[in-house]
Design a protein around this nucleic acid. Structure first.
Lengths: 360, 360
DNA sequence: CAAAGTGATGTTATCGCTAACATCACAGAA
DNA sequence: TTCTGTGATGTTAGCGATAACATCACTTTG
């Protein structure tokens, strides 16, 4: 839990930047209170509060007077006060591994849009694929007494779990479909997706299919994907030798470097299935840079279906993941759970698709 | 301003999802209050508060007792209450055009990391390059009485400006270096960057240099870039004919489509400078797909230096933008301004660089 | 026509914390 | 010794909103 920001030392000597641009500080500040609006409209704060939250409980005439007063004063209700007294904040905490990946940012975008439209605000944190960081963020963010918490994956520290439990807020785990979810879950079956893609590659004529995986200690998704790959290979009766699997860090450059190792091996693999599109794009580029052709010399498949996948030359064969839908579904679950009407299953499977393009 | 979320109807009939996974709701909830900690430690809440915020004002012995009590109870202070009474929240509002672009997400990542480390929490919103959306988000977010507001660009509606003024919070505009900033600003000179890149292309031997711009009504950055391009071309004595400039929506596919128009024209341009890396990557792919070579048949330059730029084959010549640094500087300015020690200029220019690679 | 219901508004008491001031014990100075 | 300063802790009074209940003027109903 981070320390609170330091005290604001009201330094008496005028600062350069102060003099220059903070003249505005002089005027009203955003401190119109509900009481001011109420006085202007000739009612009590309770009536103003009702106009804002349950307008149909206020008579038309009064409502209009109050709305006018709100407009004239530029009043914006203080959410801190609202959260405090109502004992539930409008904040949803969302912790993602990274925002620098359009796979996640697509979900983030939809999620934040939907939440905002429903009157919630999203506090975003980045875990860097590290459950320890997740715990640290969580213990800070819980100070807002969030209305709900959104996480990616099912791997969390014991402390995180305790915090989540004790908060009583709905918790949505994204991006996979766990057997025994912590609370709610929205995602797709990573194992099945990898299994299907492996089979598809085989169907398209590839035999020595390699697998390039992401290495992160607490990433259950990549473990699932590896399992799916291995299961399919076993079923197909193809031996997965040591030089057919590799585990590397995240990023395109990482994929580009990794593919060289596969290209040098012999007998060479004829297809490489990468656990993320970033790796796959890197792998394609690495292959081209080595003077080889994709897919003729090496076929490559990815996972995620990022925007680039369809634009790239050669375009990328990949697993399509419903990232926008995951965000929207997540927002819907939260909304419904919070108003108490949610009655569906705790795990929502949004499915996936095999998108065949030029690279395999 | 969005309506607050609807009331929580305490439905008495047990729900499916409830029974299944909300048993935990039964236990404590996160409602250890400071008073509980205080009682356990045998002090008043004031002492607990001091241990949390100004530990050196508490004797060692007491402090240890209190810290123990905090640990044992799992107490997490309620930030809503804290904000309310201290009249300044630990929330920083940040509105970005989109998170789906690694140019911005790099800044977002650094910004949120730095802010969290300093005890602030970042509320993220997406404006979609639209000042009206920005205004709507802003008027909602101001309810948190943010400690600071971060925006991209200098174009804002009158209502937004009024809101910002009246909040009294520091406002940081990112991504350009305005003549007359609203308050603070961190970025680089878009006009100069485009100017330099145009000159660089000329220096590298290209003559008929086209310009592919982003079209968004309220995007001052793209206007600056266009000006820089035109100024350089004028200086170089090269006529910019109508078929050398194009303005298109955001995205790779958009760039890929746009480049076809340039390729069909005759006489053809020999270089295309794109106002964003997304457009440039799209343009490269479009060119390759048309069976032409980059840079032999058409050289292409971008703007942003995203991760992909260096991995791509051919790698992308582009304007390097210090996105991480912008985020860090922004956090620093906010921090220093809030503790009252900031004394620097209101505009911080982080510079840019011309990154030459294979595409031009 | 009295009793009970209904809709619109007001009153009161917090929510959990912290600012500002008050208190108290004890140290060193006069 | 008495005074005063200093450091550690406590007391009091809200911050700005809302929940829960109270009130009051009108209907409606038997």
């Amino acid at each position: 839990m981070p320390k609170p920001p330091p005290e604001q030392t009201g330094s008496p000597s005028p600062k350069k930047a102060d003099a220059k641009s903070r003249a505005k500080k002089a005027d009203k500040s955003l401190d119109v209170r509900m009481a001011d609006v109420a006085k202007l409209a000739g009612v009590t704060t309770m009536t103003v509060s009702r106009v804002l939250r349950t307008p149909d409980k206020v008579s038309r005439k009064t409502r209009e007077r109050v709305e006018n007063a709100i407009r004239r004063t530029g009043f914006v209700p203080n959410y801190a006060a609202r959260s405090l007294v109502s004992r539930r904040s409008q904040i949803v905490v969302a912790l993602f591994p990274t925002v620098m990946n359009s796979v996640f940012s697509g979900t983030i975008e939809e999620l934040s849009r939907e939440l905002f439209a429903s009157g919630y605000y999203m506090l975003l944190g980045e875990t860097n694929f590290d459950v320890e960081v997740e715990e640290r963020l969580l213990s800070g963010f819980m100070g807002w007494r969030p209305a709900a918490v959104v996480l990616v994956g099912s791997a969390h520290t014991a402390t995180s779990r305790r915090l989540l439990e004790s908060s009583g807020a709905p918790v949505v785990e994204l991006w996979n479909v766990p057997e025994r979810p912590f609370d709610l879950s929205v995602g797709f079956n990573n194992r099945a997706a990898a299994y299907e893609m492996t089979h598809a590659l085989h169907r398209w004529g590839y035999r020595r299919i390699g697998f390039l995986n992401l290495h992160y200690p607490s990433n259950d998704r990549s473990i699932d994907r590896q399992e799916g790959y291995r299961a399919a290979m076993a079923e197909l009766g193809i031996d997965v030798t040591a030089d057919m699997e590799l585990t590397v860090p995240f990023g395109m450059e990482s994929g580009s470097n990794a593919v060289r190792r596969f290209l040098e091996a012999s007998p060479r693999i004829d297809a490489l299935f990468c656990a993320s599109d970033s790796l796959a794009v890197g792998a394609i580029m690495g292959t081209l840079r080595a003077g080889l052709r994709v897919p003729q010399d090496l076929a490559i498949a990815g996972f995620g279906n990022v925007e680039l996948a369809s634009t790239l030359v050669p375009s990328l064969t990949t697993v399509g993941v419903p990232r926008g839908e995951i965000g929207r579904e997540c927002a819907r679950l939260i909304r419904e759970r919070l108003v108490g009407t949610y009655d569906g299953p705790s795990v929502v499977d949004c499915g996936f698709s095999i998108v065949r393009r030029d690279s395999a």
